[in-house]
Structure formats: C-alpha cells, structure tokens
Simulated scan of single mutants.
Amino acid sequence: MFGSRRHLRANLRYLRALLRRFRTTLVLAAGLFVLGPLLFHWRYIGPDGVPISFGEALHHVYFLLYGQPSLPYVHDWAIEALNVVIPPAGIALVADGVVRFAYLYFARHKNDKEWIEVVTETMKGHVVVCGAGRVGYRVVTQLREMDKDVVVVEKREDAAFVSALRDENVPLLIDDTRSPLCLPRTNVKHASAIVCATDDDLANLNIALDARKLNPNIRVVIRLFDEDLSGKVRDTFKAEALSSSSLAAPAMALAAMDPRIIHSFHLGKHLMVVSLFEAREGLPGLNISAIRDRFGGLALSLMRDGHEQLHPVGDEVMRAGDVLTVQASYPEYCRLRAFTNEADPPIFAHQDQIGPVWPRKAG
C-alpha cells in the first residue's frame, strides 16, 4: 500500500515537472487554438458575405496544421497572412510539444538522461549517491528505508548494482561525473547531501568539489581509500571523509581477538563495540539501569523467548537465557565480560536467527 502511494506521488510529481517544462509550449498552443480561431471568427467573411462561427474557425485552424484549409479563399490580407503563418508555426509547435512530450514519457522507462533530469526537478532535499557499487547500493538501500529521495549516478552501464537499482525504480543516471552537465542533471543545487562512493579517490574529490561549487551548503560525504588523505580532506574541506581501511581495521582486529564483538567503530578517541551477552552468570537479577551504571553498557535490544525488544526500559530485570545487545567502550566491555565470566559468545548468536539485533556493518 505504501509503495503504491509512493509510486502515485512520483508520477504526479513527474507530470507536474513535465507541465512546468512545457509551459511555453502550452501557452503557444493556447494562443494558436484560441487566438487563431478568434481572429478568423472576427475577420473572415465568406464569399456569400456571411461570417463564420468560432467552431468553423477552430476547424479551419486545426486543418491548416496539415496544409488542408477548410474555408474558401477570400481576398483579405489579414486572412492570407494567417493562412501562411499558422501552418509552419503549428508544425513547429507540434514537433516541439507533442513529439518531445511523448519522447520524455517513454524515455522514463529507459532511464534516459533527460528523463532523470525531469524527475530530479521534482525533488528537493534529496541525496545524490555517486557510485552504484556495493557501498553505493548499501547507502541507497539505507536511505530509502528512511524514506529519503535518492538519485544515483554511475559511469558504467555494466556496474554491479545497476540492474538492481532499476528494478527498485531508483532514479539512475548513467553519465561521466567529469561531465559539466552530470551533477546539474541530478538537481544537486537543491540536494541536502551528496555521497561520493566510487572506487576512485580522485573522482570522489572532483565530485565533491563540483557539488560544493553548485551548492555551497550541501553536506558532502566522501569515501576515500587513502587514510592520510581522508584526514586532510576532513580538516580542510569540512566534509565527512571516510577511509575504508580505517573503518574496517577496528572491526577486523577485534573480530580476530574476540568473536563476540559483532560491530565496532570510533567515537572521537574512544573505541566503541557492540556485543551480545547471554544472561548466564552475573546478569540474571540485574536490571538494565544497573548494567549501564556499573559497566557503562548501553542496552540496544533485549531478546527474550524469541521476541526482541528494542531499547528496553531501565527497570527491566534480566532473566536467565535472555540475550542483551550492548554498546560500550572497549574497556567497559572487557569489565562487563569479566563480570559475566563468559568466554564464548551465545551459541545461537547467528545473523539469520537474531535478525534485527545485528547492526549493519560499514562498507
């Protein structure tokens, strides 16, 4: 139901954008089919001396477009001028209006550049994601789960997730990001953020600079492989520069040391970890607030009898067999682990069984 409403809103926005783009054509069409017949109705006097009705005048103007006048010839300079001017003007109007409108309507099914440009004209506060690889696709998926409008730019038609994005009806522009027309086609000047997630550091930097030039207030997130470069960009460019190696290194190191840790990240100078604790020893009888106050562990979720409770309340008392997902700094995690005397992770701590309690991993 939600998807159908979203699709209807997208089509209505598309129609509004097309009408706005063709407003000049619509005005000219109104002038041709309203003003033209009025002039014939006012000026034309037939050979029998009888004026014509507005309907006859409209009929005559319509067939003039095809070089088939329906009224007899009369010696009147104004009528002669109209008979000469209306056919080429009408043909140009039909060619520019009807043909281009039909082209744009069908082009949307081919993800044509002009169709993408029309779609993005309807957006404001959207996010532009550059790169349709694994990272870019995950970013798009996460943004769409938060009901955020997204436009994707990818250089290669055969990129890994191009087909998947099209199947999900995500606006996808196949274009070279170095082209001066690429980012304007995504309506980046009205976007709230741009994510540069290609596998080329230089290309990501170029995209970020071009985006800031078009929209000085846009939030820029850059994926960089060079950790030194990411630090410099973060400090001088005032952008969120994320190094893949710096994001992956803590997770890989801690996973090698402790299989209980399912996620890790840096918060300033603090190494934060997310882990699962089964209430076997020490935890039963403690409430959530006591775990936080004594060990600094923030309870993210509580799994009990197969049912998950996100953000359990502070006075919730742990029972034997409960599984608690805890976020804490690494030293606090070590203290909590020592308190519970657990050397192994819960035996059923598997992603397919736990499901939502596992946070998404970066990259």
Score class of each variant (00 low, 15 high):
R9H: 10
F237L: 12
P345K: 15
R138S: 13
S243C: 08
W77C: 00
M257N: 12
L286H: 13
H60F: 05
L209T: 08
L202H: 04
P180W: 05
G49D: 05
K113L: 05
S4F: 14
Q327T: 11
A159Q: 11
I194G: 03
A208L: 05
Y103Q: 14
F348K: 07
L181A: 14
F22N: 04
E168F: 06
D199T: 08
G314R: 03
S246Q: 13
L229C: 11
I45G: 02
T340G: 00
A256P: 00
P346F: 06
L26Q: 11
I116V: 14
E145V: 09
A320D: 07
L302F: 09
E227G: 09
Y62T: 01
P312F: 10
R319Y: 00
H109V: 07
F295V: 03
H75C: 00
S163M: 03
N341G: 07
G55P: 02
L209I: 08
L58G: 11
V94H: 01
R166G: 02
T25P: 00
S244Q: 15
R6Q: 11
A362M: 07
D112M: 00
V99P: 03
L229T: 09
G36W: 09
G49I: 03
R13F: 09
E114T: 07
S230A: 15
A81F: 07
P331Q: 13
S163V: 07
A164E: 12
S179A: 15
V119Y: 14
R212E: 15
R223M: 05
R100D: 15
I291H: 09
A102S: 15
E56R: 06
V220I: 15
G90S: 02
L58E: 10
R212H: 14
C130M: 06
M318I: 12
A193Q: 12
V151A: 14
V139N: 11
P72V: 12
M146L: 12
